[in-house]
């Protein structure tokens, strides 16, 4: 299998961060809030044999109850806002929310449209963003690395004083 050398570098740095912040296990719940399915495809590609994100301690989980991180894609359509809120509430602390893709950041090309709410941050608190339309798997991994590098400590429990 043809591997990208940079992938290994990013990967092992990512793994260190996952160890540091998430005890070596980062569970991701992906939520599509009206994306065009391009970002989903790229996120799904993270699990294929090329990127194999699992080996860095990162895995996708079926329920928000199991998740440490919500990867939200799409501009958040009117019809998905409520579902997104519920998924956020269903996720136990500590949790990170990452808006993936230009649309998720601020609505992208759909910004202003009657049918969308202009990005994830309009509906739930967003911790980080990953730009791109869609961001490629490698970009997603680089961005995750940058995100985790920036996170000094394990994500704080919001609402806890």
């Amino acid at each position: 299998m043809q591997q990208l050398p940079e992938l290994e570098v990013i990967g092992s740095a990512l793994q260190d961060n996952v160890r540091r912040l998430f005890k070596g296990s980062l569970a991701i719940r992906q939520i599509d809030t009206g994306s065009d399915n391009a970002t989903e495809q790229e996120l799904a590609a993270l699990t294929n044999a090329y990127y194999d994100i699992e080996r860095f301690g990162i895995h996708f989980v079926p329920s928000p109850r199991h998740a440490d991180m919500l990867l939200v894609t799409g501009p958040v359509t009117r019809n998905m806002a409520e579902a997104l809120k519920r998924a956020y509430d269903a996720t136990p602390h500590p949790k990170l929310v990452v808006a993936v893709g230009d649309d998720a950041i601020d609505g992208g090309i759909y910004k202003g449209s009657y049918a969308v709410l202009d990005g994830v941050s309009q509906v739930i608190p967003v911790d980080y963003q990953i730009a791109g339309d869609p961001p490629s798997p490698l970009v997603i991994m680089q961005s995750l690395l940058a995100i985790l590098d920036g996170a000094k400590k394990a994500p704080k429990q919001k609402g806890q004083s």
Binding site: K23, A27, H66, D68
Partner: peptide, 13 residues
Amino acid sequence: YRNLWKLFYKDEV
């Protein structure tokens, strides 16, 4: 083991 350990340190809903 890491998955379990991580889960032990998470809140619950």
